[in-house]
Nucleic acid binder design. Sequence first.
RNA 1: GGGGAGAUACCGAAGUGGCCAAACGGGACGGACUGUAAAUCCGUUGGCUCCGCCUUCAGUGGUUCGAAUCCACUUCUCCCCA
Length: 401
Amino acid sequence: MRVPDPVMSDLQRLLRLASDVVTPEELARRLDEAGRAGRRLRVKFGIDPTFTQVHVGHAVPIRVLRLFQELGHLPVLIIGDATARLGDPTGRNEQRPPLSAEEVEHNAATYLDQIGRILDLSAGACEVRRNSEWFGAMDFFDGLRLAAHATVARLLERDDFQQRQDRRLPIHLHELMYPLMQGWDSVMVRADVELGGNDQLFNLHMGRQLQEREGQPPQVCFTTPLLLGTDGRKMSKTYGNHLPLTAPPDEAFGKVMSLADDAMADWFRLLTPLEPEEVEAVLAGHPRAAKARLAREIVAWLHDAEAAAAAEAEFDRRFRDRQLPSEVPELSLPGGERPLPALLKEAGLTASTSEARRLIAQGGVRIDGRAAADPNETVVLGAEAVLVQVGKRRVARLRGS
RNA sequence: GGGGAGAUACCGAAGUGGCCAAACGGGACGGACUGUAAAUCCGUUGGCUCCGCCUUCAGUGGUUCGAAUCCACUUCUCCCCA
């Protein structure tokens, strides 16, 4: 067996996590040059402080950043505070509400806190910048000069804009500037590589273009695959199919178990440290077992191995063996008799009495294990706890006080 | 600046005076099946003191026995022309 050339092997490790790289040859050359010159590559990644909950889909590029870091390079995190403050003035686009300086700072802090679980953010290991640093100093003419670098047709090619055009939704002028701003960030930090999700390729190219015009070597664009959510669609908070980094063990385990089979390979490759051969072996087995393995890996990553084992035991108990969760929340309500729908609503198990009635009619409500059939039935709440189940997931023990 | 079109429930989209709490599709939820999969099938999807009642169709104010549907104004959007 031949001893692998270290640079090639680094490259392979990186490319394994990539969706598109423009270009792999350039990346190889830079890694090689940096290695020879003893220089760290500046690997840029922009974060948008418009939301605070990071999910495992966001974690993919961050893990690549981490890999770069492990290989001796320097992650450069750009907090897009200037862009976030601008937002989408109509407030309709929930992805881009205009934020106050305080909100931006708060979001950035929580964001960094979560990223810090994956990446070493200490001073020497990582550089954190805010783009207000340079955009704050630019005047209107500087902005216009920047705008002169791109054509409208080009900017409108973006998928998001295309869709809004088709659906006749508003596109604001300043939104067209976002790619340019992001590109300018690359110029200002002299990025060697920029990371981003698959949908970011256009913006990353913009960075290349601007750097070239400014006489800098154009950055390598490195995009990571978009992770599929638990329902097989692109993972996104708006679809509710995301797994937050901060999800408690039981929830995380359950979400992974409800993942589509086809998504498992990507999840293994992008979110676990397993080697390719091992992933293959696991996937060759029973899908249920493979997914359980995946769920353990994910929970162990987000929490620890112990939490993973406990979460699996709890999951099996509840859903495989169809038993009650080991810990059923207890709730004390004013004692006395009341109609079942009112009780469900009061206990927060349903959103309304109407919903409760529907669920009862559909056989989704159980009292002490017995299916309730009559929406008009009443329940007496006393010292003795009543076990109430709504669907498969909502359970509580209620007692009167 | 001028002209035209439009704003309907979580989303998309019908409905253009009573039969509309509002078709249909997606999503979501419940049930069956299961590997809590996926797919499939059935059902539900404004609220309530629920076989009846109450509040919704951008906002405000009108017309009418009666308005999501007609009129006026307001706000927002899209398209075309300049």
